[in-house]
Design a protein around this nucleic acid. Structure first.
Length: 272
DNA sequence: CGGGGCTCCTGTGCGC
DNA sequence: TGCGCACAGGAGCCCC
């Protein structure tokens, strides 16, 4: 579900409402979501801490927590396919609930329960963070660096964009959208792209991610922002989910294939 | 390294 | 209407 723009939207929403508030109680309704430490210790550790800051890295959300005594630590949240982090009144569908000192709470909801919550001393040493590729929106991630990384890989470009070790934060929706905007066939080999194509692709990755952030994300199915609302980018999607519908560019039907086991939407006429 | 298949879990939509 | 299968914004693991 949530890709970089959705996680960024949730981060910004939560920053406005939970910073400097105390987590007064934690209720775990699906222990399997808590990956470390064990659920009982997780609850003990997180209870009575203050939410100090929130960071997003790729699709990972990191909340810095400060206990009354002792050192700060981090609550990491990966939403996977259907996770939601919603601030407000208690939600009966919550998998984990965090009560706050303001009388409200924020709920971790997750229909498919693939999500992962952790309380750790140093989130940067988690393997997911330690191996994560560059942030596509970071200024120091230059076109030259992107070109160099592409040159070293012979795999198809679309599954590669989904590889979080290659580049962070891109998922199935925005990979399809960026390749469509760039007129690049999703099955092209990464090292086959020329400099021009690579530059255009990075530019379009940024363009689509930034626009999606401005629209507060895409809600194809279960995604909700920090307020429980759907994202508005869904209606701006150019190819994702449009199988059989007319391409906005050439009016030929949008195609759907499988690449690396993931549904892949593209225009066979426009994308070469 | 590349690629395919399977797995975690729950719900929905489609074809028969 | 009912049932079974495919598939869903992710990603790790195993095998060839």
């Amino acid at each position: 579900m949530p890709e970089l723009p959705e996680v960024e939207t949730i981060k910004r929403d939560l920053e406005k409402v939970i910073l400097n508030k105390t987590i007064t109680a934690v209720s775990v309704y699906r222990p399997a979501i808590i990956k470390e430490p064990l659920p009982e210790e997780f609850v003990r550790t997180v209870t009575n801490t203050v939410c100090q800051s929130i960071v997003r890295r790729g699709k990972l959300l990191v909340i810095e927590l400060v206990p009354a005594r002792g050192r700060h630590f981090f609550l990491t949240i990966h939403l996977k396919m259907s996770g939601q982090l919603v601030y407000g009144s208690a939600d009966p569908k919550s998998r984990v609930r965090f009560n706050l000192s303001d009388g409200n709470c924020f709920s971790y909801n997750d229909q498919r329960a693939f999500g992962e919550l952790r309380a750790v001393q140093d989130w940067r040493t988690l393997s997911v963070a330690a191996t994560m590729g560059p942030e596509p929106l970071a200024k120091d991630f230059t076109a030259e660096k992107f070109i160099e990384r592409l040159r070293q890989r012979s795999t198809r470009i679309k599954p590669l964009l989904l590889d979080q070790k290659f580049i962070a934060g891109i998922g199935n929706i925005y990979a399809a959208e960026a390749l469509f905007l760039s007129r690049i066939d999703p099955a092209r080999k990464a090292d086959d792209l020329n400099r021009r194509e690579a530059k255009v692709l990075l530019s379009n990755i940024r363009k689509v991610l930034e626009k999606a952030i401005r629209c507060r994300g895409s809600s194809v199915n279960t995604y909700r922002d920090g307020r429980g609302q759907k994202g508005a980018f869904t209606r701006h999607l150019l190819v994702y989910g449009r199988k059989g519908e007319a391409c906005y560019q050439c009016h030929e039907p949008v195609q759907k294939t499988a690449l690396g086991g993931r549904g892949t939407y593209f225009c066979g006429t426009c994308q070469k």
